[in-house]
Design a protein around this nucleic acid. Structure first.
Lengths: 126, 126
DNA sequence: TTTTAAATGAGAATAGCTTATCATTATCAA
DNA sequence: TTGATAATGATAAGCTATTCTCATTTAAAA
């Protein structure tokens, strides 16, 4: 039977960076981090790796308007995000508020929601 | 003293459409609606009108990831949005939940937040 | 009116991110 | 080890949304 994908150090590197990341990372951030281990790593490869991991369902996209898409492991459960307007990094915010969906008129069917906070992160506030 | 702007039927039309809109509209939607009254209206003009109204502060941008920016009058107070995944329209959702910001760790300084609901609107659900 | 410069419309140009192309490299089954 | 072919890297191309350019129109002051 044919393999559809091969194990490469490039893919491993991208996987490893996401494995250890404690916040969502953009393709640019992934390239930067993974490049520390893989010399000459190309953007196209990062995109390809990310797309493979997305299809696998191992990572999920974190989208914030006007920002490049970021990615994080999809095993984190329901949570939201915070973007620092100084360092521009995005952080996970655990938990949610049940009463949120009560804001929506009853005739609307809510399937999902996203909350994004903006401000300055702990590091930049200090 | 010099006028910086002149009154034109094109600007009036864009203004009027936003005045009456009961939901945020994209440049495309604005062009479509305003074109009913102004024959041959161009996109560039809609962009110019929108930018002028933004600078005036009369309208505000409503941004949803992967979507073109929409605009709505800025006199609506704090509220959130709902996007229908069928008709793609965006609706206002009145109100908010105070306890939301308590989710954010104390060292973070929250300056703003946005909530976007996804699902099917009243019309598309019926 | 006449004048003059702001506004318009069409389309070219730009900007950011993402995908496609293709020659080269490297995985891995035999 | 070798051979078939998937993966890589560099870069061209694609996509959208938005701005720019410029000849022409038009608002509105004089």
């Amino acid at each position: 039977m044919n393999r559809i994908s091969r194990k490469t150090k490039q893919r491993d590197a991208v996987h490893a960076v996401l494995e250890r990341a404690e916040r969502p990372l953009s393709v640019g951030e992934l390239l930067e981090s993974a490049s520390e281990r893989i010399e000459g790593l190309g953007v196209a490869t990062v995109y390809r790796s990310v797309n493979a991991l997305l299809e696998e369902g191992w990572i999920a996209a974190v989208e914030i308007p006007g920002e490049p898409v970021r990615y994080e492991r999809s095993d984190k459960g329901h949570h939201h995000h915070f973007q620092c307007e100084k360092c521009e990094r995005v952080f996970d915010i655990a938990g949610c508020v049940d009463s949120l969906r009560k804001l929506v008129p009853p005739k609307f069917r809510v399937k999902d929601h996203a909350v994004t906070f903006y401000g300055t992160c702990a590091t930049c506030t200090a």
